[in-house]
Design a protein around this nucleic acid. Structure first.
Length: 596
RNA sequence: GGGGCCGUAGCUCAAUUGGUUAGAGUACCGGACUGUCGAUCCGGUGGUUGCGGGUUCGAAUCCCGUCGGCCUCGCCA
């Protein structure tokens, strides 16, 4: 008599003491079997948990014989009665008060010996985990991550549906865009020699939808970028892409905040108070040296340029003479900031392009606070005044950074992050969300001697700054907004330009001539000519949300079938060569690899 | 493209820093055991130390190259 595995009465994590006496049907994977010669126990696992099955030779000889043959990851169905465990309760399991006294068992599928164990904590090599991803995904941690990811996606879909947004699908086979990341290309068979590009984002399509009168659009959509991978970067990734018409910046931010609140509530059960804090890009750079500050801890940057302006110390002197600044971070690191540690930090600064990390320690001298080590001898006369200004006490370490403002910010932002973790100042249970707004619309590139968009060329300037486009373009702020969570950029968007005149002016500043603009963005420019409503939107990195909310180290942990650093899928072995026939059909030939 | 770390049994790791026959846990195979829950106990199979070259009396260990994985800089509007 076959066990009706399609009529499971419970999942493996569900049974409790209240169920004692019930006849149940369970099915799942053998997590572990313990054969005592007589009585045999089998831990049966599914995604909800584990239930102990009890096979007693006295009451059910046949099932007991079967149980003795079971191995890890065999798939079985069993039926029996839920019984109490008496004195043998296992407090480690939610189902530990009961077990199932098995009366019949079917082996639905046997497992070969495993390349790695599903039921233990040893993390197999990552390539092996990806090669046998279906096994790795059986593990409870992976189950939890993918289910959390689903909860986030489900919250997003429900929220936008309830707020009147519609999901419109945009093409994957689309046009290569000249700027931005490298495109993934797909050859056309019917127009040999031409190529589609997979979209880096549906940016232009969603703007066209606004112009087409679909005033609230939201889509969870795959995007593709052929660039080198990182722990937080995959060649294909998923965005929540959203756009609204007839809105100002506040409207978009309000809708997004509501969505964020919903995500935290439904995925983690956490209440996020609204509205979220806002900070201008200027303030963020000033205080944290970065436009996506982690506000969970202090160690803010302090400007001491004026105070050290008169110093003879050549390292500071030269920076200031070149129009740069001197900023510092005061760290009450105590014994954590040993010579070895600070030397290491200095090496890191060198590694990211800095010239070094001048520092000193504050000590209590006879006549007040004085500088002890490092660059002490160069700036000793400033000790009292400097310590007073930056709030340094005896025992503190002051890290200085002289140079051009942008460089100083870069190095001190890096340092701040490292100090935060070395000094264990980062509270792991906090979720610090904030908006960063008022970015510069344009940044000057000294190497290419031209302006670049901070975000993209369709980002609208602040209305009050539009006159500055003619006089001082670098001062123009934009209507962009980035959502930052614990120092990570989680979403970014803007109000878009909906007026031809402004768009033309921006293209002019970017050095994009009329001819070039027409070639690259003709369809968007066309659309702007035929009645474009004011509009704006945002894109969330869904993978990154899942990674952050599950506190994962890597994007690969929240993607079911991710790729390795060389963009290979070890499971399917993609990418792989194709047949000559396939190439012929596309009129493609493959060049031989260059010899070394 | 640059820099760094890593690669030893199916898996996770060790090997006294160049020295005898490369070990342990786990998995797997055989045996014992009626209350385990990382079961226990006894026995066993399992190794091209990623691959190729070099140095050496002797290489898992040192050197060069190469392949793969991870981290990172560049790159990612």
């Amino acid at each position: 008599m076959a066990i009706p595995y399609n009529r499971r009465t419970h999942r493996c994590g569900e049974l409790r003491a209240a169920d004692i006496g019930r006849e149940v049907v369970l099915a799942g994977w053998v997590n572990r079997a313990r054969d005592h010669g007589g009585i045999t126990f089998v831990d049966l696992r599914d995604h909800t948990g584990i239930t102990q099955l009890r096979f007693d030779p006295a009451s059910a000889a046949g099932p007991h014989d079967t149980a003795r043959t079971l191995h890890n990851e065999d798939v079985i169905a069993a039926t029996g009665k839920v019984v109490g465990r008496g004195e043998w309760v296992n407090p480690k399991l939610p189902t530990g008060e009961i077990e199932v006294q098995v009366s019949a068992v079917d082996v639905l599928s046997r497992s070969d010996p495993l390349p790695f164990q599903v039921n233990d904590d040893f993390e197999a090599g990552e390539d092996l985990c990806l090669r046998y991803r279906f096994l790795h995904l059986r593990r409870p941690e992976m189950q939890a991550r993918l289910r959390l990811r689903h909860a986030i996606a489900a919250a997003i879909r429900a929220y936008f549906h309830e707020h009147g947004f519609i999901d419109v699908e945009t093409p994957f086979l689309t046009k290569s865009t000249p700027e931005g990341a490298r495109d993934y290309l797909v050859p056309s068979r019917v127009r040999p020699g031409t190529f589609y590009a997979l979209p880096q984002s549906p940016q232009i399509f969603k703007q066209l939808l606004m112009i087409a009168g679909y005033d609230r659009y939201a889509q969870i959509v795959r995007c593709f970028r052929d660039e080198d991978l990182r722990a937080d970067r995959q060649p294909e990734f998923t965005q929540l892409d959203m756009e609204m018409a007839f809105v100002q910046r506040e409207d978009v931010m309000n809708v997004v905040e509501g969505c964020v609140q919903r995500i935290f509530k439904e995925a983690l059960g956490i209440d996020i108070p609204l509205p979220l804090p806002r900070m201008t890009e200027h303030e963020a750079m000033n205080r944290f040296g970065i436009d996506r500050p982690d506000t969970r801890f202090g160690l803010e940057l302090q400007d001491v340029t004026e105070l050290v302006r008169g110093t003879e110390f050549s390292v500071f002197r030269e920076a200031i003479d070149k129009g740069g600044v001197v900023k510092c971070i005061v760290a009450s690191g105590g014994d954590l900031l040993t010579r070895k540690v600070t030397d290491g930090l200095g090496d890191e600064i060198l590694g990211i392009g800095g010239a070094g990390l001048p520092l000193t320690k504050v000590a209590q001298g006879a006549g007040g606070l004085e500088f002890a080590t490092g660059i002490a001898k160069h700036i000793q006369p400033l000790a009292a005044q400097l310590c007073a200004q930056v709030g340094a006490k005896a025992g503190d370490t002051i890290f200085f950074m002289p140079g051009a403002l942008a460089d100083v910010c870069k190095y001190l932002a890096h340092l701040r992050g490292r100090l935060g973790s070395i000094m264990k100042l980062v509270p792991e249970d906090k979720w610090n969300l904030l908006w960063v707004i008022d970015f510069p619309l344009l940044v000057w590139d000294e190497t290419e001697k031209r302006w670049f968009s901070t975000h993209h060329p369709f980002t609208a300037p602040l209305d009050e700054d539009i006159p500055l486009l003619d006089t001082d373009p670098g001062k123009v702020r934009d209507k962009a907004y980035d959502l930052v969570l614990n120092g990570t950029e989680m979403a970014g968007g803007s109000i878009r330009i909906h007026q031809q005149a402004v768009q033309k002016k921006i293209f002019g500043l970017l050095g994009i001539g009329e001819q070039e603009a027409k070639e690259k963005f003709e369809f968007l420019l066309d659309a702007l000519r035929f009645g474009a409503p004011p509009h704006g939107g945002i894109a969330f990195g869904l993978d990154r949300w899942a990674m952050m909310l599950s506190k994962s180290e890597s994007l690969r942990e929240v993607i079911a079938f991710p790729k390795t650093q060389r963009a290979v899928c070890p499971l399917t072995n993609a990418p792989s060569p194709v047949s000559q026939a396939q190439l012929d059909e596309l009129f493609l030939s493959v060049k031989p690899l260059p010899k070394k």
